[in-house]
Design a binder for these strands. Sequence first.
DNA 1: CCAAAAGTGTTTCTCATACACCCATGT
DNA 2: ACATGGGTGTATGAGAAACACTTTTGG
Lengths: 245, 245
Amino acid sequence: MNNMEHKIPLANNHISVDCVVIGFDGEKLKVLLVRRIGEDSGGEVFHDMKLPGSLIYVDEDLDGAAMRVLNQLTGLKNVNLMQFKVFSSKDRTKNPKDVRWLERAEKAKVERIVTIAYLSLVKIDRALNNKNLNNFQAEWVPLDEVKDLAFDHNLIIDEAMKFIRQYVEFNPSCLFDLLPRKFTALQLRMLYEVLYGKRIDVRNFHKKITMMEYVIPMDEYQQGVSHRAARFYKFDKKIYNKTRR
Amino acid sequence: MNNMEHKIPLANNHISVDCVVIGFDGEKLKVLLVRRIGEDSGGEVFHDMKLPGSLIYVDEDLDGAAMRVLNQLTGLKNVNLMQFKVFSSKDRTKNPKDVRWLERAEKAKVERIVTIAYLSLVKIDRALNNKNLNNFQAEWVPLDEVKDLAFDHNLIIDEAMKFIRQYVEFNPSCLFDLLPRKFTALQLRMLYEVLYGKRIDVRNFHKKITMMEYVIPMDEYQQGVSHRAARFYKFDKKIYNKTRR
DNA sequence: CCAAAAGTGTTTCTCATACACCCATGT
DNA sequence: ACATGGGTGTATGAGAAACACTTTTGG
């Protein structure tokens, strides 16, 4: 691929995808993790968590592999998957726990795995209670309760969050991927607050919503709440796309 | 790497890095390309251009490989290299020209090459007239004169430009990587104009410069120009880093 | 003195921020 | 009636944008 001097190219690389799937429950951001069962050096069984991921197969490209992982897990299709970073450090597989687990899982010695990290923002209610979540022992874990994960998956999540914050600025529509189809102003505001880690003034926020022509106030209100019912809003993708040209 | 059903993982992947090296000559953006010599289906020799790149070697990670490519070519060290996107589509190596060239260059059948694209912004004057540029038959090509390149390298350059525009917003200091150490207001303005593809009002721009505390006016002026001499400015990284906390 | 580019101020508008009270509903 | 969260308007300041003329220098 180059006309430089030739040394030994790295053959037999392993390429994987890992998916950071983020949901929002109206209060907190959650990440979708799958359970991993392994044995430590003393032969003791341990449980921990990891990001859903997979090596890539011969008949698919990276986007396809990420899509497959996400679909198997959540049953969701047509979600927006964004490739946001590659992790290729040699010591991402240096932990003996991880090495042992890998060699059992892949039945081969693994030198290094280059992983392409994907981010997806999903409606947590649509991806919840799916039987596949049980099959894969998957769980929604609040971001602030994520423990030590396999490999460098904690790092990958951190980078994903940095990416989202930047991405939202340029493409605010992705926020609505996290919210139910009908949502209240409070939900949207909480989402902003939790993403940027600071409080937002309620009145200014209502003005902001009013100025977003693609956030449509509905004639529908909350029901059965023990206080004034909040109005529902919906996101209009067509209007959004128009106003963004 | 996963606990999903197992199909055949893709072994023997090839992983490469490709570097989009951008320079600015005071008027236009240029990209560093290397010449490629191949044979078409009729056995005729053809010349075209490609991005500098390389497969990765066993003893290096991706950032290291990108660094090596850039250093061999330009002699530059300690430049800021940003990994900005992965290209993994199967048909990025579908052009018969490219297939033939690859098989000759790598002396093996190549199914697919996943490439990690890097972006680097450099001072064109420091990386010009380097003897290595001749050794590798490298050339600075104005962005608007780039012809059909090997593989999907045109696409990679397009994506690189999108990336820069976003990146500048968050990290304006990278603009000064493109300019000489001493630069005029015009040069800086042209850089903005060419990046965003629109004209900027001169007076407003001077105000903008004044407000950027990290752009220091010098007591030095242009010499030997047939009109009023422009003042030189310099970029102060220390001040920049302070004002960004 | 002419050509060519450098440099300079004021006004206007938009947008972000700060801030406090009344409204609707269920218990 | 009260507790709970929903919803509203105004005033201020900062930064972006529009706009035209004078200055310096070499030829």
